[in-house]
Design a protein around this nucleic acid. Structure first.
Length: 267
DNA sequence: AACTCAAACAACCGCCGGTCA
DNA sequence: ATGACCGGCGGTTGTTTGAGT
């Protein structure tokens, strides 16, 4: 398809937004709400293209935007999610409240890529599984992940397949964590934030090649409580309705299966 | 103080998929 | 069925800022 840029097409203003323009856009969205970006410039009286307005709102003006430095916890999460999802910045951003895909993308391209390069010489000597992203480029395995990998190997978790991961854990229903407790697990409430990473994952993500190639415990690192490991590895069933199997068979067939699924035939 | 350079950030662009007339 | 439009995504580029010399 493709089309010419709306900005260049209509001689609209480009470049940095002024405070006045910000105010106009903020006021407009405050009154009319988000969406219908095609009509925003005209109705708000902005000499900007609709896409520019949308981007400005989403990346800068939205009231729930969290400004400031990426914390260590957020960085750690970004690394793990990138390992899981690849360059799908919007999905990664969706797991980081207040952060935008653009911000995370910039952070990755500036800070984390650099760390990755620095970590590579050391990582190349370690016995770690190297994943590839879409470009065929090896996915980041920096110090933190190397540490995670080591710890997992030490306790045997890395070599263990996750079986019978109950899909109820991944949905966003309010009762998801409660279900866990109700099934007799002793996972403490503060430990359940591990599920926050997981419960938002949708079907597409669950079927992605990254997920199929990744050990969840390795993804989550050493913070996985033993109760959770026991619960997942110990049959975890009972419910019996929906399961995601992650076993050796899928590991071997994962690429072919995920290609088929990602192709959209089964989603 | 002036200059250079790299890092960080904001914004643009091309492309794609979904929707609707 | 088709094409235009819209929203969204990821890659890339341009600009600003700050540290170092």
């Amino acid at each position: 398809m493709g089309r010419s840029s709306c900005c260049s097409r209509d001689k609209l203003k480009k470049g940095a937004w002024s405070a006045a323009e910000d105010k106009v856009l903020r006021d407009y969205v405050g009154v009319h709400g988000e969406g219908k970006w095609g009509k925003v410039p005209k109705k708000a009286g902005l000499n900007r293209c609709p896409r520019s307005c949308r981007l400005r709102w989403l990346n800068y003006l939205r009231p729930d935007i969290k400004r400031g430095n990426i914390s260590d916890e957020e960085e750690d999460l970004i690394i793990r999610l990138h390992n899981l999802l690849g360059n799908r910045w919007s999905l990664i951003a969706g797991r980081l409240p207040g952060r935008t895909d653009n911000e995370i993308k910039n952070y990755w391209n500036t800070v984390l890529k650099k760390k990755k390069l620095q970590a590579q010489p050391a990582a190349s000597t370690a016995t770690t599984v190297m994943h590839s992203d879409q470009d065929g480029e090896p996915t980041l395995k920096n110090e933190k992940e190397a540490e995670v990998s080591t710890q997992c190997s030490q306790d045997g978790a890395a070599s263990r397949s996750v079986q019978n991961v109950h899909c109820n854990r991944f949905n966003s229903s309010p009762g998801a964590v409660g279900d866990l407790h109700s099934e007799g697990s002793s996972v403490a409430a503060e430990e359940c934030d591990l599920f926050d990473i997981l419960k938002g994952l949708d079907t597409e993500e669950l079927c992605s090649r990254y997920l199929l190639e990744l050990d969840f415990f390795q993804l989550l690192g050493s913070n996985v409580p033993q109760d959770m490991r026991d619960w997942c590895g110990g049959g975890g069933g009972g419910g019996g309705d929906s399961y995601v199997f992650y076993d050796d068979r899928l590991l071997l067939e994962g690429a072919a299966i995920s290609d088929t699924w990602i192709g959209g035939e089964h989603i």
